[in-house]
Simulated assay, not measured.
Amino acid sequence: MSQVLLAVAVLLAGLFGAVASSQAAEPASDPCWVSLEVRPGEFEYVNICPDPDEEDGGSNGGGGGGPRCDLTEEPYNEFCLGIKACQADIPSPLDESKWPPEETMPGPDYIFTFVRCRVPGQEELYERWRWIKPYDGALPELGWQALGRLQTPAFTMSFEPAGMTYVGADTRFLIDGIGDGEIIGSVAGPLQATGTLSHVEIDPADGSPTIECRPDLRTNACEHVYLLMSHEQTSLDIDGRPGFPAQARLVYDVTFTMSGAEVDLPGVPETLESPWNGTVIPVGEIQALVQNR
């Protein structure tokens, strides 16, 4: 009898162990669950599938003809997930390199972030990392993120006559490395920023005002006349000659598009300026010999 009881106990232990093992492994085998590094060195299984009560991906007032969520209580007044009134971290605090695989994204306009929602009839908040489609009010914040993804090109500045220019002569500034004048950033949720070169600003560094030049300074030079020699300047060119530390920067007009259509984002800059870059310009004086006849 004792042997029978022992066998039954072993069988039950094995059965419960199998059930526990199956439950522990469930997140790893369920396509809705993925392992993510939600904080440095901290990994969690995250459910990326929407709840059954969600009728859309995040509208301002729910969807369909069923119950609509209540967006009157701050801070859960940004968008709805079904009947849940929600607030999300936008831009996402999670670097895009740590988002779930792209094939799990419900659509091209979604971002992965942390969401907090108030659920009708429940005291406990709904809090989860998940894909959401950014709501209208989130677009300016995403616009700043899209703007930050525009990279201005590394360019070089030169001048003619090469090597040294002279007081009273036309000095021509040239810029190389600006490409075709258009820069395109990577997408930030549904938004993408594009910069079109508007003009080039040049500071001759001799105390005169900044010059606004045409966008293509590879072939169309921008000219300036120096009225002072540079012999007292502390900046030196590669040959050790003192010169004016002239510099230039590129100025772009920025537009934002969503699904190919241009959008207006109040409060987000519509221009982008590159860092200054320049060259030292020695300015000498041509000595003229005057003879009486």
Results as ranks from 00 to 15, higher is better:
I238L: 12
C222N: 06
P106H: 09
E123Q: 11
E26W: 15
E127V: 01
N292K: 14
P266Y: 01
L12T: 10
V290Q: 12
Y126P: 00
L71F: 00
P52W: 07
R116S: 03
P93N: 09
G121W: 01
P215W: 05
D170L: 12
C86Q: 00
F79H: 02
Q151H: 13
P161I: 08
I111P: 04
S35D: 11
F43H: 15
L227V: 13
F43P: 04
W276I: 13
F79A: 00
G189M: 10
C69V: 01
L5M: 11
E26L: 13
Q23R: 07
P242H: 08
L289K: 15
P275I: 11
P75Y: 01
Q247Y: 08
Y135Q: 03
N292P: 10
Y226H: 08
L94G: 03
G179N: 10
G189R: 06
P50Y: 03
S274I: 02
P106L: 07
A25L: 12
L6E: 09
Q87I: 02
P100V: 04
E201C: 11
Y126V: 00
E74R: 14
V268R: 07
L272T: 04
F16Q: 07
P153Y: 14
F16P: 04
E141N: 13
Y126F: 05
K133W: 05
G17A: 05
D136S: 04
P100W: 01
P134W: 00
V283M: 14
R218E: 09
L174E: 06
C80H: 00
P67D: 05
G278K: 06
S235L: 09
E223T: 15
L142Y: 00
A138M: 02
T255Q: 08
F155R: 10
N277I: 11
L5E: 09
W131L: 02
T234R: 14
G61L: 04
D109V: 08
A188C: 15
D203F: 11
I183S: 02
I178S: 11
G243R: 11
